[in-house]
Amino acid sequence: EFSMMFKHFDKDKSGRLNHQEFKSCLRSLGYDLPMVEEGEPDPEFEAILDTVDPNRDGHVSLQEYMAFMISRE
């Protein structure tokens, strides 16, 4: 189920989600993330990124995504 969600939000089929795609994916899974303006701080989402994209390369791989989802179950 999680990998299907990942593929759905991987719009460019790159095998990874940019942070915006990842945020959309989390919202569709029921995460209550506040709407913030582009460039505004988003501490809740930043905290999630610290876990799922610790190297802050700007992308979430399928492996990082799956590890995050399994840790939340």
Rank of each mutant, 00 (worst) to 15 (best):
S28A: 15
M4I: 03
S28W: 07
A67N: 15
G39C: 07
I70V: 12
H59Y: 14
S61M: 08
G58D: 02
L62A: 07
M69L: 13
L49R: 01
K23A: 05
F68S: 04
L17V: 05
R56C: 04
S61K: 12
D53L: 01
F22C: 01
H59Q: 10
A47T: 12
M35A: 14
R72L: 11
E40Y: 10
D32C: 11
R72S: 15
M35D: 15
D12R: 10
A47C: 12
S61Y: 10
P34I: 07
S28R: 13
E40R: 11
Y65E: 01
P34V: 07
D53R: 02
I70K: 07
G39Q: 08
D57E: 14
P34S: 11
Y31D: 05
L49Y: 00
E73K: 12
D32R: 12
D12K: 05
R27G: 06
Q63Y: 06
F45D: 01
L62R: 10
F22K: 03
P43A: 10
P54W: 02
K13Q: 15
L17G: 02
G39Y: 04
P41Y: 11
E37W: 06
Y65N: 03
A47E: 14
M69V: 14
Y65A: 12
Y31F: 15
P54Y: 07
L62Q: 11
E44L: 10
V36N: 10
V60Q: 00
M4A: 05
P41M: 12
L26S: 00
N55F: 06
K13C: 14
K13W: 05
E64T: 13
G30M: 04
D50L: 02
P54D: 03
D42P: 01
V52Q: 00
C25Y: 08
D12G: 10
S28K: 15
E44Q: 11
L29F: 09
M66Q: 09
E1V: 03
G15S: 07
V52T: 05
P34M: 08
C25T: 05
D42N: 10
V52W: 01
K23V: 03
D42I: 05
E38G: 11
E46H: 07
N55H: 09
D50R: 06
L26M: 08
F45I: 02
